[in-house]
Write a protein that binds this DNA or RNA. Structure first.
Lengths: 189, 189
DNA sequence: CGTCTATTTGAATGTACTCAAAAGCGGTGG
DNA sequence: CCACCGCTTTTGAGTACATTCAAATAGACG
């Protein structure tokens, strides 16, 4: 598991063994049951989560409707960047879809790491950039594609979502009702 | 105008007079006619634009349809963050809506400034964060509000857009057809 | 096995769409 | 300065797609 984290970390920033150990030592670990919340809307998100095993989503609620923003699987980092950065109450809830185990990097640790390991700054910037790029892709899909095309693209590019996520969450991610997704699926086969 | 830039800059990062002069000296200036492009899709965006006077939008084209991403007015920075950062061809076109004069910060200047003025790093990070937050607001509006509500929110929060931007661009920003926007407007009064 | 939740299906409705045409507006040249 | 041309906005009629409400079926979990 340590190796998994190390290998994944190297995608973002090259750290020496010593530096990695320093980083690794600041991590906490946790597991969440299926449907358990990693963060509840209204609280300040003071942690970033790295998924070791399992799968999560985040969603907003408006007019009593859940709007799923994104799904994340093993090997991904996620934090409510807005809340984490500006320390204001989060508008989103982060929820485990499956039983999920995570590594947890607290904001305090992160700041400490910035001071101790200048190279680590890069990690923070890349997390921000990733957040931006991910959101951008999603926004473009929402504005430029029909619900059918959005679903087809999901099937094509992210089969894990189709395989592991309940349909009603997928519907809420696509911006449609479960009934409509059911009909779209029917229309394909 | 220099004062305008200086004052605006102070919103992001506190620079000494000397540092500001250093920054200011790297800027280039330009004006664009109504409907002229600041950046054409397919090219790499190597500049960030600060709007001194006027108004711009950026848009993507898919299926022959323009999808307006955002409008910017005097006092705002804009760059295709994706293209600027990763130096890959931009998928968007940046277009002047009115006759527009801008200050131009090239990527080369920006990198130079990062080296010379460490405090300037903050500016880059904040631009990224702003880009993220802006996109996020937009995405949430698109997923959570009806076309009518999106329009009403625009009227409420950004009257400049209503006053200065042609309706068909507003429609493309809201994700609807000009005809539909016309009907929505009619339904309000 | 039974209960609770998720998914599917049906029927009616609504919202935005397309196609088509009229009205409005702005800029240009005579 | 006014008439004309081209582009934008409005309006009308019919259509497509997703929605709502309601109910049946299927699946998951204790």
């Amino acid at each position: 598991m340590k190796a998994f984290i190390k290998q994944n970390m190297s995608r973002y920033v090259k750290l020496s063994n010593e530096e990695f150990e320093r980083f690794y030592a600041t991590l906490k670990f946790g597991t969440f049951k299926k449907r358990e919340d990693l963060l509840v809307s209204g609280n300040i998100c003071r942690e970033a989560f790295f998924i070791i095993e399992g799968c999560i989503r985040y969603y907003n609620v408006s007019d009593g409707e859940e709007h799923t923003g994104q799904f994340f699987f093993e090997g991904s980092w996620y934090s409510d960047y807005d809340s984490f950065l500006f320390e204001r109450p989060s508008k989103q809830t982060i929820q485990a879809i499956e039983k999920t185990s995570v590594a947890i990097l607290s904001k305090a640790s992160m700041n400490q790491l910035y001071d101790d390991l200048p190279r680590f700054e890069r990690f923070g910037r890349l997390m921000a950039e990733n957040a931006f790029m991910g959101l951008r892709q999603r926004t473009e899909a929402l504005t430029q594609l029909s619900a059918l095309d959005r679903y087809m693209r999901l099937v094509e590019n992210r089969p894990k979502v189709i395989q592991r996520v309940p349909q009603r969450f997928i519907a809420s991610y696509l911006g449609i009702r479960p009934q409509s997704l059911s009909r779209i699926r029917k229309s394909i086969t």
